[in-house]
Design a protein around this nucleic acid. Structure first.
Lengths: 134, 134
DNA sequence: ATACACGCAACACATAATGTTACGTGATGC
DNA sequence: GCATCACGTAACATTATGTGTTGCGTGTAT
């Protein structure tokens, strides 16, 4: 796979699960579908579980399930769960000495934050069930 | 610096230049302000020149200048010049064998493309002179 | 008790971004 | 003409990040 594959993997998996929310799926099955490794799947899906989008069960009949109705899971939920922060960045960069530069830095960060918010809002308009085509 | 610093560096530099468009700036000066290396600056600014946002002059009194009025350069111009493609991704991933998966894959890509377009549109609403505060 | 599936740590590997050095080319000023 | 300055570019090291893989522990159902 390549860069930004976490969001892609999460979206594919959730959309797929939306087609049959009752079914319990193992990370091995999901990994096969996605062409990757069960551990990678658990890593990504673990974040979604922390965000309350998925539940996981150990043991014999264990696996993964949606934590709520697919209509109630938006792309923004997924994006935020993965904590990617696509456009906003370098908030922790060392502050420039020059005060003019410092002010400019804050302006740039502010604009990027605004763009990020806009992105999240756009993502919030679509649910994973819509992605699937329902 | 850290990841995604190209967009940040480009935005800072252009916004700074917008404050005095006539002034010729060397990559060494810019690198000092940005806390990076002249070669890195030339790499990033080279892309902006290819996109027609900047001009560069070699030689004794050489350096960088805006190619047009700062009001006429939007964040979308900068973003597209850098060819980053933040949200849309893995268009070149190997197509899944299962036809259902293939259809889902196209749906996901389509949604992400839509989000990307929305992002560019949002970026197009702000010019670099607005970032600076004019 | 056994099999199964997640949780997690540790490590190797690949890729990309960035920092750095070096050298070539073009333009200016003497 | 020559020295100087600044960009253009290649080459390489360094770092960061993501991904793949193995191994082992823990919990659960049969």
């Amino acid at each position: 796979m390549k860069r930004n594959s976490r969001l892609s993997l999460a979206l594919h998996t959730l959309s797929h699960m939306a087609g049959n929310p009752e079914k319990m799926r193992t990370s091995a099955d999901i990994a096969d579908h996605a062409g990757t490794n069960p551990v990678v799947v658990r890593r990504v899906l673990g974040r979604l579980r922390e965000a309350g989008l998925l539940t996981s069960e150990k043991g014999h009949a264990g696996g993964w399930q949606l934590a709520r109705a697919p209509e109630a899971i938006t792309l923004a939920d997924v994006y935020l769960a993965l904590d990617e922060r696509l456009v906003a960045s370098d908030e922790n960069a060392d502050a420039p000495a020059c005060s003019v530069e410092h002010a400019l830095h804050k302006r740039v960060s502010s604009v990027l934050e605004d763009v990020e918010r806009s992105l999240v809002q756009k993502l919030g308009e679509t649910s994973i069930s819509e992605v699937r085509g329902n």
